[in-house]
Nucleic acid binder design. Structure first.
Lengths: 243, 243
DNA sequence: ATTTTTTAAACATCATATGATTATAATTGT
DNA sequence: ACAATTATAATCATATGATGTTTAAAAAAT
């Protein structure tokens, strides 16, 4: 419930989108399980106090994201996880309002570890000056952010996002959502104040510097270190059951 | 119009999904441009000979994929490309019914080149025996396929998909659609009979063997060669304007 | 026990009406 | 003339009710 940034910002107001978010969260959080039939349109419209039209709009959104399958005469059922559009920004965001899933997070980090170093490289090779400046801005903001944990993590995410954007690869850009999901999940899971970790900020500084200097090799290597370090600390935290 | 595999297979019948595909294609193919207002619900419902409800369902699907933004009082406008869920399987598939975009394809290959070698590695490390068997099956099918170009390319795609699946990483799996899009686009662009390329089949054979033997290092390296080779030939083709 | 028929549940589509929001045009005040 | 205000038309949002189609399951017939 805490971290509720982005998501389909356009139209975050419309009731249909709200309902789709509500249902989407229940699906992602395992409240509705794959294969399950969810309630019929009438029940849903009563439960959310909206008309059937709204329910249908909401369901259509989720069908588009691969979370639901509707068959007339049968009902609406939750798709198998393999059908889900896991890279959809909303779907990723919904993961944040569910109990953090360690295995999912591990896989997320695994992918980040191969994606982001290349993003850093491409930022050096194809990034426009203005885009690199954005990276520096995000870095500074992260170094200076002391007010809240949340703001710090968001600054962190913006840093990584700036790199994705500077890579000037559309496919890469489409993965931006991964970062927010991974970072916020990781914070919630480890429950540690990331501002305390001066070492991490140093890692970021080094990456930023390399990119600004357009030293692709260095940037790639340093991003690997950064993520490797984060992943390592994360793993330690995770494998040590908190209580 | 040729290559029309997968897409939201569930419910490919419902009119709403058909209409969403039609509009989606127009957007992806640049027929409707980002920032443009598309026709209002009434006109669309007349154009497609369906009711407004169906149009609204269709539009909702596209809103969910980030292609459209609806604002009451204004209309429905096409989102900026950066908002698109480019990794959505439908969106990728719609690219296939548009004139191939060289730059998009280049970026796709760029990403494949960093993703797939790791997928091959993880297949070795985490793949279940049955999943590896699937890879071998796909490989055999590719070697034996001689009937049509299309079938051959599909066999090729299934080979790569089998590897993604064997990686047992959900995020990775969610990228399956990339393969189909990349392979089919590439064929349409170069307009060359891939069956003729015995060398390519050999590359695939080597990758498959390495994975079956669960030799992660070899698998990763060989997948790099495979994609590097493909990318290289593709580049040559592309940069040589046909006619 | 098997096949056929009927029925009820559920979604698909259509049609219509009303409310809310927005941009634009018309009006008014100065 | 210019600015501020107001009215209007366009467009989507939501609600409601009716009818059609599909499916699964119950009932009936053989």
């Amino acid at each position: 419930m805490y971290y509720d940034l982005k998501e389909t910002d356009s139209l975050a107001h419309s009731t249909a989108v709200q309902v789709s978010r509500e249902i989407g969260r229940r699906i992602v959080s395992g409240n509705y399980k794959p294969g399950d039939l969810i309630e019929d349109e009438m029940s849903l419209s009563e439960r959310f106090s909206v008309s059937r039209s709204v329910v249908r709009d909401a369901v259509k959104i989720l069908v588009g994201k691969g979370l639901l399958e509707v068959r007339r005469g049968i009902g609406t059922r939750v798709q198998e996880r393999t059908k889900w559009g896991l890279l959809d920004n909303d779907v990723l965001a919904w993961h944040l309002s569910s109990p953090p899933d360690r295995e999912f997070l591990r896989q997320l980090m695994e992918v980040r570890l191969i994606i982001e170093p290349k993003a850093a490289r491409w930022a050096c090779e194809h990034g426009r000056d203005k885009q690199l400046a954005e990276i520096e801005i995000a870095q500074t903001r992260m170094e200076e952010e002391q007010s809240s944990i949340e703001d710090f993590v968001i600054a962190d995410a913006l840093f990584h996002r700036a790199i994705f954007r500077a890579s000037n690869n559309e496919i890469m850009r489409a993965m931006e959502g991964l970062i927010f999901s991974a970072l916020l999940s990781s914070i919630r899971l480890t429950n540690k104040d990331p501002r305390k970790n001066k070492e991490s900020i140093l890692f970021h500084r080094k990456v930023a510097d390399a990119i600004i200097q357009r030293d692709a090799d260095k940037a790639e290597a340093r991003m690997e270190s950064l993520l490797g370090d984060a992943g390592h600390r994360l793993k330690k935290q995770i494998n040590t059951p908190k209580k």
